[in-house]
């Protein structure tokens, strides 16, 4: 359950129900699709053009490039699955490729805080901790609220990069599991894993350098991002996250549909489809 499934399994794992849902398009879906039809057709005519992640070879992109210790990666995977579990609506975090998404994010500029102000001094004052624990309400506000990540914000005041925080964080998950249940995090029952994750969410777990809430917020943010970001980043495998949410992916135009009363389900298309080269 807690191990990421190899990619091949996922291919077979697409449920009959999802298949039916995704092919049972309403007429409106074809309107959006037809605008891009020419481009798509051209792509399909190119032999071997990898236009979506279902084609041979995309699983070659799934390997760890940030977590050197496989156990850390498996703990991370188990945690993401509890935050976004498989259910009758569709796949959970592991099946969507979320752990690989997070691994890649941490290996890049975001994980290295390349564009953040990282000069000292780093003051750890009371107000920062207080802020982190009440941070939930900040997400829905501001002129761009509709476009913000739906996870708690926090005031970042640590010399640790996000990559550092994740490494400390997964080890702290393991440590907490040992202290509380005397076993590995991965071997715990789902409810026990939830108990530990709740401790992190509440800022009650022990962590070096940052409050456990800080790690938890990043974990939750990246789990959701991994479920729903374009598949090019390694998550949202086969656009299954988008299918569950009835999200069509990037499209050129909705002018013909914007005034329509009925809800329109469209077959999702990826950035790769959209750019078409």
């Amino acid at each position: 359950m807690t191990e990421p499934k190899p990619h091949e399994d996922t291919q077979k794992g697409i449920s009959r129900r999802n298949f039916m849902k995704n092919t049972g398009l309403v007429a409106g879906g074809l309107v959006g699709g037809s605008l891009f039809g020419g481009l798509l057709t051209n792509q399909l005519q190119k032999p071997g053009a990898p236009i979506n992640s279902e084609t041979e070879g995309s699983h070659l992109l799934e390997a760890r490039t940030f977590f050197s210790n496989s156990e850390d990666f498996l703990i991370l995977s188990a945690a993401t699955e509890r935050l976004f579990p498989t259910d009758d609506l569709g796949p959970g975090a592991i099946e969507l490729g979320v752990p690989y998404f997070i691994d890649r994010q941490l290996a890049g500029e975001w994980g290295m805080n390349a564009k953040e102000y990282m000069k000292g001094p780093f003051l750890q004052i009371g107000a920062v901790d207080a802020y982190e624990s009440q941070a939930d309400s900040t997400q829905d506000q501001g002129p761009n609220a509709e476009t913000q990540v739906p996870t708690p914000a926090f005031r970042y005041q640590t010399p640790m990069t996000r990559g550092d925080i994740f490494l400390e964080g997964v080890q702290a998950l393991e440590q907490t599991a040992q202290e509380k249940f005397e076993t590995n995090f991965r071997k715990l029952e789902p409810q026990q894993q939830d108990e530990i994750l709740q401790m992190f969410d509440d800022g009650k777990a022990k962590m070096n350098g940052v409050a456990s809430t800080t790690f938890f917020n990043l974990l939750l943010q990246t789990t959701i991002e991994g479920a729903y970001a374009d598949p090019v980043y390694g998550g949202n495998r086969n656009m299954e996250g988008w299918r569950m949410k009835e999200f069509p992916g990037p499209r050129m135009s909705y002018t013909a549909d914007i005034e329509k009363e009925d809800f329109i389900v469209m077959k999702p298309e990826s950035l790769r489809n959209y750019q078409g080269h």
Binding site: E146, T147, P150, T151, D201, L220, Y228, A229, K245, F247
Partner: peptide, 25 residues
């Protein structure tokens, strides 16, 4: 709405886990 940013759930819904997933979808 973007797919990542659209996770509005009625208050009282946990912010992660099965109920969150169900309601956010």
């Amino acid at each position: 709405d973007g797919a990542i940013s659209t996770n509005h759930v009625p208050s009282g819904t946990p912010k992660w886990g099965p109920e969150f997933k169900k309601n956010s979808i």
